[in-house]
Nucleic acid binder design. Structure first.
Length: 299
DNA sequence: GGTAGACCTGGACGC
DNA sequence: GCGTCCAGGTCTACC
């Protein structure tokens, strides 16, 4: 079954897919041979479907298996539109950055959209699992969580959808710590899952909330395990770019770019992007760092 | 409000 | 192969 979904222009599926590392995390898969991306979606009623994404006629073709009824097709269309930001526009950002050497590529490469998961719950869990660990550790923890708690596709033991809050909420800290190997993050993930499952925390209401960014940020910071970096990262996924996700990598690239490799603090990172106003997070995200390029060449 | 220490894991390194 | 050290954000206790 195929669905065609139009996108605001300019659009590049490849650019969205490689906007950050999310595509490497289950239940996304990226086929090295042809670059095709797929996602195992948990749909209403407990159905699991594979969605394969291909660029088509300036938009996206979603190839879905198994075939779905009309209601599920609509759900998949909404889901893919959100995940790829098909309705997002960046003309104002492009106009602002056109003459900036580190950002002038943005319009040509249709940059701006950041790959996201269908639910803010999944993005929040994955963001917590990026903190204080290596990227390899994040991949491992997400894979374990998905394979242990997610529903399988068509009874297959190999591929699973991302677990719902309820599916994780039935677990316990010891299991998440010892078997899923989430380490000290186990209680954070469990508490978040139980809060969402019980209705105490309506995370999905934040997804399309029109709250001021500062209030949205406070709501995210109230979740145990989400600090300033994680909150800024989630705000970026929600299309709010007022805060910078400052981590050790951010300090490193800013240090190399403008401070001759001398250590910098968070305020220096912040001030480097202050002039981009409400777009500062995106400007930071898309900046063509000379440090990164020299590392790429070296490696 | 600022700071130190703990949390947990995997990788790098030295022996 | 084993032990040690370090990096990576956030929380909590303390000043």
């Amino acid at each position: 079954m195929e669905l065609y979904l139009p996108a605001q222009q300019p659009f590049s599926l490849n650019t969205v897919i490689h906007s950050h590392g999310w595509v490497q995390l289950a239940p996304f898969t990226l086929e090295e041979a042809n670059g095709e991306v797929s996602y195992l979606a948990r749909l209403r009623g407990g159905r699991v479907a594979e969605i394969r994404l291909q660029e088509d006629r300036g938009g996206v073709k979603a190839v879905v298996q198994p075939a779905l009824d009309e209601a599920h097709r609509e759900q998949v269309a909404e889901m893919v539109t959100w995940m790829l930001g098909l309705d997002q526009e960046f003309e104002d950002f492009y106009a602002l950055t056109r003459d900036e050497p580190g950002l002038s590529q943005c319009a040509d490469q249709a940059q701006g959209r950041i790959l996201r998961c269908p639910t803010l719950f999944e993005d929040a869990v994955k963001t917590i699992l990026t903190t204080n660990t290596s990227w390899a550790g994040t991949i491992r923890m997400v894979k374990s969580l998905v394979s242990q708690f997610g529903l399988p596709l068509n009874g297959s033991d190999q591929r699973h959808a991302f677990p719902t809050p309820a599916e994780i909420a039935t677990s316990d800290v010891d299991t998440l710590r010892a078997e899923t190997r989430l380490g000290y993050r186990a209680p954070y993930i469990l508490e978040l899952s139980r809060a969402v499952d019980s209705g105490a925390l309506d995370l999905e209401a934040l997804q399309r909330s029109d709250l001021p960014t500062a209030e949205l940020r406070q709501a995210l910071l109230s979740i145990k395990g989400i600090g300033e970096y994680a909150a800024a990262n989630l705000l970026m996924l929600l299309g709010r770019y007022d805060y910078l996700p400052i981590d050790s990598w951010a300090r490193k690239v800013v240090s190399h770019e403008w401070h001759q490799g001398q250590p910098v603090d968070d305020e220096q990172v912040q001030s480097a992007f202050e002039r981009w106003g409400d777009w500062k997070g995106l400007a930071f995200w898309l900046y063509e760092w000379s440090y990164y390029q020299s590392e790429t060449v070296t490696n």
